[in-house]
């Protein structure tokens, strides 16, 4: 499994430590000497950037899957795909700069090359959720792997009942995808509730952990599929709250994160009890990991 060459089409700043890389397949050897136009880092503007020529397509992925991103000589990291699964020209990854590789990825400029392996892992049960209400619960950067699910749901909106996104971050400054959140929120059939742990200055929204939003979110518990991604402690308490509201345990799905070196079940690093998070997950039925989540340092 070797990485395939991709070019950075654009890098968007999301928050002080988080950014989104939009990647396109590098054209074949000998043909990729022409440089892509240097876009600029634009935080909140969706400016279409023309590609010099029609790009080749990216591999199809399902919402919830991840790629391994390789930076020449630095290393490789698992990053969930956060773009639109219907977009066959661009791969988007929202990344928090917290380690050596992710910090180096943040320094990339349009036209720079990265290696991509993937997509890997399991996906959100969007087909199974058809006909049901959908509750998406995200904590911090956990919104990134859920965004493809939002795109898919909005594209096939009629297939779902009520849809609500509950999103919690530490502070208002940590909120990702602000413009899109506002746009999603403007849909009459898509609810977005946001809360922050610590309110600052002019924040007039909810304060408190994301689990507090569950009680008042509009959905029918008995006909709901819940999908969530965030810190494990958040997911545990959110799942508990969902169950308390009457959502059946086997309709709750979580996305987990672990150290990964290979992404295909060989390196052993991502084990969580009997689960290989890379190939059995990252999206896992809550029922299967409910008890394991309570064990410290598993």
């Amino acid at each position: 499994m070797v990485p395939h060459p991709y070019r950075v089409r654009r890098r968007r700043r999301e928050t002080h430590d988080t950014f989104t890389l939009e990647l396109q397949p590098a054209s074949r050897e000998g043909m990729d000497d022409e440089r892509l136009p240097l876009g600029q880092e634009d935080a909140e503007r969706d400016i279409p950037i023309a590609s010099p020529q029609p790009p080749s397509t990216v591999p199809a992925f399902l919402p919830g899957q991840f790629n391994m991103l390789y930076l020449f000589g630095v290393g490789e990291v698992p990053i969930s795909i956060s773009g639109d699964p219907a977009d066959s020209t661009t791969l988007a990854h929202t990344i928090r700069a917290v380690g050596t590789v992710t910090a180096a990825l943040r320094a990339l400029r349009p036209g720079d090359m990265v290696g991509v392996r993937g997509p890997f892992g399991s996906h959100w049960p969007l087909s199974d959720a058809e006909g049901n209400d959908v509750v998406l619960i995200a904590g911090g950067i956990g919104l990134a792997p859920l965004r493809p699910a939002v795109y898919r749901i909005l594209a096939e909106r009629a297939k779902y009942g009520r849809v609500v996104l509950l999103y919690g971050t530490r502070t208002p400054a940590d909120i990702l995808y602000r413009r899109e959140l506002a746009r999603w929120r403007s849909h009459f059939d898509f609810d977005v509730l946001i809360t922050v742990d610590h309110a600052l200055g002019n924040w007039r929204g909810n304060v408190g952990v994301v689990t507090t939003l569950i009680a008042r979110a509009p959905f029918d518990p008995l006909n709901t599929v819940a999908m969530m991604c965030g810190p494990e402690v958040m997911m545990r308490f959110a799942a508990r709250e969902l169950v308390r509201r009457g959502v059946p345990v086997d309709r709750i799905f979580i996305s987990m994160e672990r150290n990964m070196k290979c992404a295909i079940g060989f390196c052993g690093h991502c084990q969580f009890g009997p689960t290989f998070v890379c190939k059995d997950g990252p999206v896992l039925p809550y029922r299967g990991v409910k008890d394991l989540l309570t064990i410290r340092e598993l």
Binding site: K261, C262, G268, H269
Partner: peptide
């Protein structure tokens, strides 16, 4: 069977290699 990978470069940064090495679940990393 666990392994880790090591990405190494030459001094000029023009050549990189990826090595796979046995790893142990007893290491902190």
């Amino acid at each position: 069977f666990c392994t880790t990978v090591e990405d190494v470069t030459d001094l000029r940064g023009q050549r990189a290699e990826r090595w796979r090495r046995w790893d142990s679940c007893f290491t902190l990393d």
